[in-house]
Amino acid sequence: MEILLKRSYFEKGTNGALFVNGHLICFMIELPWRENKRNISCIPEGRYEVVSRFSPRFKNHLHVLDVPGRRLILIHPANDALVDLEGCLAPVSQLSGISKGWNSKAALNKLLSLCYQAYDKKEKVFIKISN
């Protein structure tokens, strides 16, 4: 399965829209582009494999693999990128500003459901990020 993230860059953050098979799934909030610097930048545009992950803090969420110069890039719930993210991505149901949104847990659950359907069919999941 291929997930497409179309980004818009702003000085104070990055907003995006997430599509699967041409259908809008949710929106995405991220930190601003700061040359891929760890903990303060969104990740570079490109195509990355996404796998399922569990942690006590975020419960079920997703892990973006093989990001150049970075590690442990997650897709997890957050409603304010500047407060809650350190380089990760957060799905939101609706955008409420630059790098801010609402109902992140609901948006993540929607995305997880689609990914788990692909994993159940033994499909790999990739995210393609572009502007």
Rank of each mutant, 00 (worst) to 15 (best):
M1E: 01
M1F: 07
E2Q: 05
I3H: 01
L5P: 05
K6W: 03
R7N: 06
S8F: 11
S8Q: 15
S8W: 10
F10A: 02
K12N: 15
K12A: 14
K12H: 11
T14D: 03
N15F: 10
F19S: 04
V20F: 08
N21H: 15
C26T: 13
C26L: 09
C26G: 04
L31M: 04
P32Q: 09
W33Y: 10
R34K: 13
N36H: 06
K37E: 15
R38K: 12
N39R: 10
N39V: 14
S41G: 01
G46V: 09
Y48S: 04
Y48L: 01
E49D: 03
E49G: 09
V50L: 07
V51F: 07
V51I: 15
S52V: 08
R53A: 15
F58P: 03
K59M: 10
K59A: 07
K59Y: 12
H61W: 01
V64E: 02
D66G: 11
P68G: 10
G69N: 04
R71P: 00
R71D: 07
I73V: 15
I73N: 00
I75R: 11
P77M: 11
A78K: 00
L82D: 07
L82E: 08
V83C: 03
D84H: 13
L85H: 08
L85P: 03
G87N: 03
S93C: 10
S96C: 11
G97D: 08
I98K: 14
N103I: 04
S104P: 06
K105V: 11
A106E: 15
N109D: 14
N109H: 10
L111D: 02
L111Q: 07
S113W: 11
C115G: 10
C115Q: 01
A118W: 02
Y119A: 00
D120A: 15
E123A: 05
K124Y: 08
K124S: 14
K124G: 08
V125Y: 06
V125W: 12
I129E: 03
S130D: 03
S130F: 12
